[in-house]
Computed example of a mutant assay.
Amino acid sequence: MGGSQFRPVYHPAGHDNDLRVAVQDLRTGRWVSMAQLLARTPDWALWTQRTQVLAAVAAGSDVVQAWRAEEPDSLAAAVMHTRVAVERAVRAHRGGHPRTRELWQEAWEACRLTAHASPADPVPWVCLLALSLLDEHAQMEEHRLAPPGPMLPPGPWGLLAEADKRDPHNREAYHRMLQFMYARSRGPLSEAFNFVQWAAGSAPPGSALHVMPLYVRVERYRRERGQERALDLHWVAEDAVRDAQHALHTWFLLTATDLASPLDLNHLAHALWGALHFGDAARVFEALGPYWTTHPWAFRTRDPADQALAEEVFVRARARSLAGRD
């Protein structure tokens, strides 16, 4: 596809064609495709990823409630009920909704019930990590446990350990922990940097945790927009280039990217393009195909809320990278 003909596509399923079908059916109020998809999902990592995407779509409807009414003994339906309850509580908190505390309590109870009903599943623990963001002052003891290593802050480490025990290096669990750290850091993000380096340092080759340092760099870039500095130098600094190359060689080149998170692929393409490593960036853009995500591209625009501007940056970065292939 040439630059003039290329049109990027936003879809949370990315290359996961089966998930895309289930999402489409969800949007029309049908749950059978979702149930069938989850029944044949082969591992906890993909199960976590798919239930997260499905819940984001289902949270605005009663489709999961309808599924539970039809199949009250379905564990998958119980997991999706929990996912939707957590998604609604998080959205309510983000929007300052007066029912936030009530929705939070309902979601917390759903997590505990599902964890008991499906003890091998990491998702209830991932969901409890998501809810930890709502405890802004860490009043719950489980949200201020001592960390497992130096240079790390107190936090919901027990919840992360429970998710990790069920699915080692679960991508969403570690990203939820990172969000917890963002929420408690108004400064230079040193604790978040320490966390992602610690997480990546223990992750095996091929793990998506090797991409996490790129997310913290984007967050730092976002927070520093108001400062008078040559912001593009942020991406060509030696440590930024090293993080981008590390993610390329320890994750991208060692994993099947057809079911990878579109966000991870976009962050890696963005980092390599920003580091002026256009040939490497082109390989990631080719793996992405047409699929793009608003972040991190939005933070390279004058108005991060304008999706059209973010799309322009993505298209421009892609064209420059493909033109720069060796």
Rank of each mutant, 00 (worst) to 15 (best):
S4I: 07
L103P: 02
Q65P: 00
S118W: 12
V216F: 11
A247S: 11
D239P: 02
D326T: 13
A240K: 03
R88S: 06
L209R: 13
H116W: 05
P12W: 03
L309N: 03
D18E: 13
E224V: 04
P8L: 06
A39M: 09
H246I: 00
H15F: 01
V126W: 04
P8S: 10
Q139K: 13
L133N: 12
D164E: 14
A308F: 09
A305D: 15
H11F: 01
Q52N: 10
P156D: 08
D258T: 11
R225A: 10
A69G: 05
A208D: 10
T51L: 13
R186I: 04
A22E: 08
S207I: 13
D303G: 09
D43M: 10
S190L: 14
R229I: 04
W108Q: 14
F278M: 10
G324W: 12
W125S: 11
M80N: 04
W104K: 02
G279T: 09
T100Q: 13
G289I: 13
G14K: 00
N170Y: 03
D164C: 04
T301L: 00
Q65I: 01
T114G: 05
R99V: 10
Q36G: 01
F278I: 01
V315G: 02
P296K: 07
T48L: 11
T250N: 06
P124D: 04
Q36H: 10
L268V: 02
H97N: 11
L145E: 15
A192S: 15
A163F: 06
F195Y: 15
T100N: 07
H175V: 08
V63P: 12
S74W: 03
A45I: 02
A56C: 09
E106V: 10
H143T: 13
G226E: 05
P290V: 06
A173G: 08
Q179T: 04
V241R: 13
Q49V: 09
L54W: 13
Q139T: 12
H81S: 14
D25P: 03
W251D: 03
F299W: 15
L268I: 01
L233K: 07
T28L: 07
S118A: 14
R20V: 00
H210S: 02
L288M: 15
W125R: 07
A247G: 04
D264H: 11
S4V: 10
R27P: 04
T257M: 03
A78K: 15
H246D: 01
W125I: 02
D264E: 08
Q139H: 12
S33L: 01
D303W: 10
V236L: 01
V211Y: 02
Y174C: 08
S61W: 00
P154K: 01
V211D: 10
L103M: 15
N194V: 03
R186D: 12
H169W: 08
A85D: 09
A55K: 11
Y221S: 03
M140F: 11
R50G: 12
A56V: 03
L152W: 05
F180V: 06
A305I: 03
W198P: 13
W251Q: 06
A107D: 05
A163V: 04
R50S: 11
H267P: 01
S4Q: 08
W235R: 09
A107Q: 06
L38H: 05
D167R: 03
F299A: 09
E109M: 08
A45T: 11
S190G: 09
A77P: 01
H81E: 14
V53D: 12
E238H: 03
E109T: 13
A115K: 08
L19H: 02
W44A: 15
A78L: 14
E311D: 04
